[in-house]
């Protein structure tokens, strides 16, 4: 089942970390004439597939593809001459599971001063003072971006800590707000309306198009939050 034609995807070594997580349950649907939407079942599978597509593109195996867009349960590949050909090829790929140490690590210094912090602590059944320690322990990963340039949807929140969106969205969430909703955490790159629960804030610049890279949190990055000094 190993697809050897491109030589891609073999740089991550062998062993327990390279178990194929695809293609069980995978579905590929053409989107228009030039794109393919590949649907999987978990965000981990999205990360694995996204990583494999990037590796293959880097070695020239996906000519013409200018956008590879991961999302919650899908990866969109746009710019294909023949989406059906990729769809037919995908089931034969062996795709390594992403390893914990893959991707750049980003540490975000934050203050736990969000207006929803007490409410979130209450939902989690802890004292507000315990929330920062708990939050710092979680290793997040940028699953995908959307909503605004540089807004990363961070996965890694344990299932029992998931939160609903606020019943009434705020008309203005300040830039740098650290927020939670559903299975995701995120940091608002700029002020905007928003319905996520705000637990804190950061001075980190999430998005600066004149910087390289423009996005502090790009898909695949590992993210940890730390209390800002003082």
């Amino acid at each position: 089942m190993t697809e050897t034609g491109t030589g891609a995807g073999t740089g991550t070594g062998t062993g327990a970390g390279t178990t194929a997580v695809l293609p069980a349950g995978m579905r590929a649907v053409p989107v228009g004439r030039r794109a393919l939407l590949v649907e999987v079942e978990t965000s981990e599978e999205v990360a694995a597939l996204h990583g494999e597509l990037l590796r293959r593109r880097a070695v020239g195996a996906l000519p013409g593809v200018d956008d590879i867009v991961p999302a919650a349960r899908t990866v969109l590949v746009d710019g294909l001459d023949d989406p059906q050909a990729l769809a037919a090829e995908l089931p034969h790929w062996t795709i390594p599971r992403p390893r914990a140490e893959d991707g750049p690590e980003r540490v975000i210094r934050m203050r736990f001063d969000g207006p929803d912090l007490d409410e979130v602590a209450q939902v989690w059944g802890i004292a507000p003072g315990e929330l920062p320690g708990l939050f710092e322990e979680i290793v997040f990963r940028v699953a995908f971006c959307g909503f605004a340039p540089g807004f990363g949807y961070l996965t890694g929140l344990p299932g029992h800590l998931r939160l609903p969106r606020r019943a009434t969205p705020r008309t203005c969430v300040p830039a740098g707000s650290v927020a939670l909703a559903g299975p995701y955490a995120g940091v608002y790159p700029r002020s905007s309306p928003g319905g996520w629960q705000l637990i804190g804030s950061t001075d980190a610049v999430l998005w600066d198009p004149s910087r390289e890279p423009a996005a502090l949190l790009a898909p695949g990055a590992r993210v940890r939050f730390r209390r800002a000094a003082r």
Partner: peptide, 10 residues
């Protein structure tokens, strides 16, 4: 539908 990538012309 969980958020998914959108193309021009969708």
């Amino acid at each position: 539908l969980p958020s998914e990538g959108m193309v021009l012309g969708a």
